[in-house]
Amino acid sequence: MLGRIFSAIMLWILAIFLMAPFVWMLFISLHERHEPIPKIQDTIPTQWHFDNYSWVLFNPTLPVSRFFWNSVFVTTSVVILQLLFTSMAAYAFARLSFRGSKTLFAIFLGSMMFAGSVMQIPVYLMIKGLGWLDTYWALIVPGISSSFSVFLLRQFMLSIPKELDEAAKLDGASDFQVYSRVILPLSKASLATAGAFTFFAVWTDFFGPLIYTSSTEMRTLEVGLSVFKNSYGESQWPLQMTAVVIVMVPLIVVFLFSQRFFIKGVLMGANK
């Protein structure tokens, strides 16, 4: 009993330690926008300025709503396309025997070792050569497949009983029908896991959009936010924090819905 109370207290202390900066962010975002940074005891605003949000979103000098739309469009496209292509590859690796499959899978795994920094410059040059700089192509196409997702989905598909495919094939189903009607519906949980990982990675990607885009209209929220900090400098903390909340809300919402799958995926990675 005592142990349980102790645990509960520990859980809350840790939660408060991790949450305090976010709570502060939320309160500051509702202060009057020209106010200097308030003392801690004045963190809770006396007047609540919800209009900061519309001011930041629709401010003509820095189109945050446009950044938001860019992030939504890019992230959704990458998540959908990546799930499609990586689930197809995972299905082939888990279910079909084809010549060279072992070698190819080893190459997929090996490529995960290479840090992004080795690829950056050549990928940039390629995107430049294709004339994709400062377009959505540059933000989407490099992300449409990922060795990690292929690995994650393949591991899961290996655990689906093979009899199901065989039964479907006896009924005359083609490989594509087995993939789309049998394997995919049974893989919903692992698709959610891979999708969640991809969502967070793309939504918070800083480096890619930073070097592949240059015009303000093509910036994603993450890079736009860093521009926001520079153009407002050390002043206007309430507006900076408003922008931070705008970046964070979709992350929190998606995490709430996907946390079960997300953590399962993390644990799977740790126990492989």
Binding site: A89, L96, S97, F108, S111, M126, S145, S147
Partner: peptide, 25 residues
């Protein structure tokens, strides 16, 4: 047949790996 469909299924991911990882390295 299985050989062919295996390669068809991995083709997009493999092409991506080739273009965005192997060639750049």
């Amino acid at each position: 047949k299985e050989n062919r469909s295996g390669w068809l299924f991995v083709a997009p991911a493999a092409l991506h790996l080739f273009v965005f990882a192997l060639v750049p390295i």
